[in-house]
């Protein structure tokens, strides 16, 4: 089996606090891979390491064969990240302006057509494409973010809780979009703490609790029906919410 992402002993410490501890992952190429855990379990830190935003303290990780530490540019050239939100300074931009900016950075001199095609792909209504992002709903902003991440034609797409705060129709629309992308060959690394989302979309998943991997395997390995799945998951998570510790990253 070919893997899009492989990690061995991936660890990240923040001034002595171990946020991610010796995580081993094998994400098959072209799959939707679930990464589930409670708040503060280490999901975001793992994604930030895999997307080269944070360097690991120890361990190794490769994305499409490129080492995240020694070849970060090669990794970045093949990935997209849909994070928490659009930068506040870009909220006055329209989706066309927002995507046009990043498309030009990707070297596309006349990005209009690509921008429209990408916005089509994520179902952003034509009426809203020329309106400032600040006026868009959370769901529409999230779709624009996905469109932005897709501009560079990434082979691996990282999504950090992409449906958080979305209503049910928006959530369903996002799921449909992710399934379409996966069918197109994009590997999707989906971080979430929504059981239904993981069960609906993913073929394999990893469960992280207090920085450590407590399960890695097929989704069905935790149970076939929702109740059995949740029971098994809670058993591995420890059944409690991990208090979010202040990160030294935010000092200065």
């Amino acid at each position: 089996m070919k893997y899009a992402i492989q990690t061995r002993g991936l660890t990240r410490e923040f001034d002595g606090f171990v946020a991610v501890d010796k995580v081993d992952l094998d994400v098959p190429l072209g799959s939707i891979y679930g990464y589930i855990g409670l708040n503060g379990a280490g999901k975001t830190t793992t994604i930030r390491m895999l997307t080269t935003l944070v360097a690991p303290t120890r361990g190794k990780a490769r994305v499409l064969g490129h080492d995240i530490v020694s070849a970060p540019l090669a990794v970045r050239a093949q990935i997209g990240l849909v994070g928490d939100d659009i930068g506040a300074s870009r909220l006055a931009w329209t989706p066309r302006e927002y995507l046009g900016y990043f498309a030009r950075l990707h070297g596309i001199r006349r990005p209009h057509r690509l921008v429209e095609e990408t916005l089509d792909l994520v179902d952003v209504d034509a009426v809203w494409r020329g309106r400032a992002l600040v006026d868009h709903s959370t769901g529409m902003q999230r779709r624009v973010e996905v469109a932005r991440a897709l501009l560079g034609r990434p082979r691996v797409l990282f999504l950090d809780e992409p449906t958080r705060g979305l209503d049910l129709p928006a959530k369903r629309a996002t799921w449909d979009m992710l399934l379409r992308l996966a069918k197109g060959g994009v590997t999707i690394f989906l971080s979430s703490h929504e059981v239904a989302e993981i069960r609906t979309l993913c073929s394999r998943l990893a469960v992280i609790a207090e920085g450590r991997l407590v399960y890695e395997g097929p989704v069905g390995g935790l149970g076939d029906d929702p109740v059995a799945f949740e029971t098994a998951l809670l058993g591995r998570l420890g059944g409690r919410d991990v208090p979010k510790r202040s990160s030294p990253a935010r000092r200065w």
Partner: peptide, 17 residues
């Protein structure tokens, strides 16, 4: 502002030094 408003994660997940 580059880091304060989250622009970093969009910019630095592109191939830029």
């Amino acid at each position: 502002r580059l880091r304060a408003d989250g622009l970093t994660q969009t910019l630095f997940t592109m191939p830029v030094r």
